[in-house]
Design a protein around this nucleic acid. Structure first.
Lengths: 119, 119
DNA sequence: CTGTATCCACAAAGATACTG
DNA sequence: CAGTATCTTTGTGGATACAG
């Protein structure tokens, strides 16, 4: 999402939030990381329809916005772990509410499409 | 945003929410309408960088998702008013929190870019 | 294992002109 | 005034191959 601002300061911060988390994959990534640190490969496996390139991009943007922390271990084979920052943790309750809102207002969503997997 | 679901029911509803409001213009439109009904031209004027075509699309999608109500008056010249549905009103507090979160965590945003206008 | 590098497809956004 | 129609541009996501 390109970053543009408009005519109202309240809406402005909202646009900023959406710029940061309002896309296809980021809420998912944040949600998955809310259970604790996770490796690149695991994230890639849990979001089966995302490509490595896109996942990399999303993680990098989230890191730039300081929502996630990337920790790289100097091992062979390489190991990289991603975890949530404090900023991101402050966002979790709000995301929960958004989720709740959708559940209350769109009961017709076909949740069968969401397969439950072990984290 | 295309509508896809992934491996977790909680994240799933979140994705749904983002599908509905997580794009460039919709939060703004919702925010502007939170002050009461507004006409097409007014919305277009308050979001100066949006084209009429895009605004039309966004309004139509919001209407399909039952977040806004479109009321057309049989007058010449035509008058169309958009207002928030109850569903959307339930979302307002959460949007407020999102806004608040951004304000707390990203004080570096240049709010000068947001010109304040009268609604 | 954790990425990059390329190239491609498609959808969304923007510009402009036109209409009932 | 409130849109449509059309065309162009941009951006995001996806497939695949390759690298450290």
């Amino acid at each position: 999402m390109s970053r543009k601002y408009i005519d109202n300061p309240n809406a402005c911060t909202l646009v900023h939030t959406m710029n940061i988390i309002g896309n296809k994959w980021k809420p998912i990534i944040i949600y998955l990381l809310s259970n604790g640190p996770m490796r690149f490969g695991k994230l890639n496996a849990l979001v089966p329809t995302i490509s490595k390139k896109v996942l990399t991009t999303q993680l990098k943007e989230l890191e730039n916005d300081e929502l996630i922390i990337r920790k790289s271990y100097a091992e062979i084979p390489p190991r990289v772990e991603y975890s949530l920052s404090e900023k991101a943790k402050g966002l979790l309750p709000v995301l929960k509410e958004l989720s709740q809102w959708a559940e209350n207002n769109f009961p017709e969503i076909e949740f069968e499409e969401c397969r439950i997997v072990d984290l």
